[in-house]
């Protein structure tokens, strides 16, 4: 197909512009992320040496172990369940919060947004430790109960405590993208829906939720993934009693004697692949329609 020179010129300029936008970030990612990742991919097909050194002997054994041993399969399932739960709770708590912020007068919105983030500018571990102080057997809640003559309850080192810590740690990662999406939402559409006789709830479900879906999707992904890889919260609030995927990978790399980097790499590769497929699918499903 022949283009006239002007169109040709336009296309050329567009292409240059695209290259300018893409090149710096993409180059950075390929150099400092994709290439290092290839190392892990290679490791995952290697043999573990007797002292935990990687021996360059190609094998599929690591992947076979992962898919055949029930302890590993279970670790995947358990982690996915915990992450789903965390994501759902964050979404239920985060959406109304983001909505609340968007609905405030303009000059309040930025401070309110910052208020969400400020707690996260202290060290993560220290925050989790603060929860230990609150939940421990002789912690703030239980000593208050005790002072009131009420029976004390075991709060720390339970799966509930782990879940609490996860939600606490991930909430802003849900609220930020939700805020960005709701901020773009045209609220007159809700009025239009109301004028057409839709109930508030129906208007929300049919109009607002679909239009803010990109935010929901982004937030869910930002919460789901790190939760799947976490290892500190279950250690500090859950008493390290249950292994999640993150604990297992961390242990294979850094705690086992000898460590097993090839198996850890394979485990990470499978996890990433599954997540990647899930996420691409999820984003397609939730956002393609508004293009």
């Amino acid at each position: 197909m022949a283009l006239n020179p002007a169109q040709d010129e336009l296309q050329r300029r567009e292409r240059v512009r695209l290259a300018g936008l893409l090149a710096p970030g993409l180059l950075w990612l390929i150099l400092f992320f994709a290439l290092p990742l290839v190392v892990i991919l290679i490791y995952s097909f290697m043999t573990n040496g007797p002292r935990g050194n990687v021996v360059f002997q190609p094998t599929l054994a690591n992947y076979i172990t992962l898919f055949t041993k029930s302890i590993y399969v279970n670790a995947y399932l358990r982690s996915i369940w915990a992450s789903l739960l965390t994501t759902l709770i964050c979404l239920l708590l985060g959406y109304p919060l983001a909505l609340f912020i968007v609905r405030q007068p303009a000059r309040w919105r930025t401070p309110l947004l910052f208020l969400i983030l400020i707690p996260f500018w202290t060290n993560f571990l220290v925050r989790i430790y603060a929860w230990q102080i609150i939940l421990a057997n002789n912690g703030l809640i239980n000593s208050s109960l005790d002072a009131l003559g009420l029976p004390t309850i075991t709060l720390l080192n339970t799966e509930g405590a782990t879940l609490l810590g996860l939600v606490y740690g991930e909430l802003p990662f849900m609220v930020l993208p939700l805020y960005a999406a709701i901020d773009r939402f045209d609220f007159t559409l809700l009025e239009a829906a109301a004028d057409l006789g839709a109930s508030r709830w129906r208007a929300f479900l049919r109009v607002m939720l679909p239009m803010t879906m990109p935010g929901v999707a982004a937030g869910s992904v930002l919460v789901f993934i790190p939760t799947l890889g976490q290892f500190v919260v279950s250690e500090l609030l859950g008493g390290a009693k249950v292994d999640y995927l993150g604990n297992l990978i961390q242990r294979l790399f850094l705690r086992s004697n000898p460590p097993d980097w090839p198996l850890g790499s394979a485990m990470a590769m499978v996890m990433m692949l599954v997540l990647l497929v899930l996420i691409l699918f999820y984003f397609r499903a939730t956002t393609e329609d508004d293009r």
Partner: peptide, 9 residues
């Protein structure tokens, strides 16, 4: 390593 993974799982 296996034993510990079973216990933790």
């Amino acid at each position: 390593t296996d034993l510990w993974t079973v216990v933790k799982g």
